[in-house]
Design a protein around this nucleic acid. Structure first.
Lengths: 161, 161
DNA sequence: ATGAATCTGTTACAAATGAAACTAACACGA
DNA sequence: TCGTGTTAGTTTCATTTGTAACAGATTCAT
């Protein structure tokens, strides 16, 4: 470790910013770490991606839905949803039925195979979540819950203008 | 709103999972919301991306550094760093100097122009962070800090194996 | 020395993503 | 019943990203 040619070396904490303490950065790194782990798990065991999992999760919780309902509940845009639906259909995990009343719409429902996969994933997903929260007291979990909701609300509010 | 042809309708909360309460999902959505807003801000005003901003942030806080040091401090992989460095060099915000002692290495330092941009961005970044945390008490901020650190540690631990 | 192993950083190629254009279906007022 | 406007979902195309291969430089044990 040789001494570097001295650079401006800005030591004034008001003009500087510690990236590793910067909230947006920390959120990005955390979410990325978590997502990568989950993505690998799902890919390895079920051959699905996170957008595909999200669709199964929506269908599993709410039953059949249209693409736009899925979009609304999953924070994905319609292109992502469309592509994920295409892949899941290809994989035989969901089925599309054109809505008779409005033929632009199609109702998406899980097939028996999709339901099977869903039932296998849910416990794994829960286990992941539990592993993340291991060592957190009930109070801490509730606090985290509220803080995240508030952050989300403020982040979303900052975007609307 | 017509009644849908009834689907399995899994009401058993043990077998089901509310995606919108699922921690990994919430973290992903939150980080994404925050990052998008910031990315737009930086792109509009400075024409830089988030990876580029991260490099400026590292250089601003620590002075000159090699690519691998930046990589270590920024949670980016070496390809991301290499590309961001290339763009910043192109834009005249940083300068590379091949290390005389080890000619594989190059020391990266901000130019006056890069420093200028950095000084303009920092207050905006701080303001963003402040906006996110608006309405949070000091105790809540500290709690959030600790909870995020612990989550990050647990998420990272879950990946090493 | 010398050659295998390792390290730094870049490049090449394929896959994922995002924005905008597009198709088809519906709604609704003139 | 036409025509304009809107909506659902898909496709296209350009860009971004990730993985792996790569080139050059260094190290270090023989």
């Amino acid at each position: 470790m040789t001494a570097l040619p001295e650079t401006p070396a800005p030591a004034n904490p008001d003009e500087t910013l510690r990236l590793d303490r910067f909230l947006p950065y920390r959120l990005a790194v955390l979410a990325n770490t978590v997502s990568k782990g989950i993505a690998r798990l799902y890919a390895d065991r079920f051959g699905i991606t996170i957008p595909e999992w999200r669709i199964l999760a929506i269908l599993g919780a709410f039953g059949a839905a249209t693409a736009s309902e899925i979009q609304g509940r999953s924070a994905m845009d319609k292109v992502q949803v469309s592509r994920a639906i295409a892949r899941l259909t290809e994989a035989g995990m969901i089925q599309r039925t054109v809505d008779a009343a409005d033929r632009r719409r199609q109702t998406i429902a899980m097939t028996a195979e999709g339901d099977q996969v869903y039932r296998e994933i849910v416990p794994l997903a829960r286990a992941r979540e539990a592993a993340l929260l291991e060592g957190f007291t009930q109070e801490e979990r509730e606090m985290l819950d509220r803080l995240l909701d508030r952050l989300q609300a403020r982040a979303a509010a900052g975007e609307t203008p």
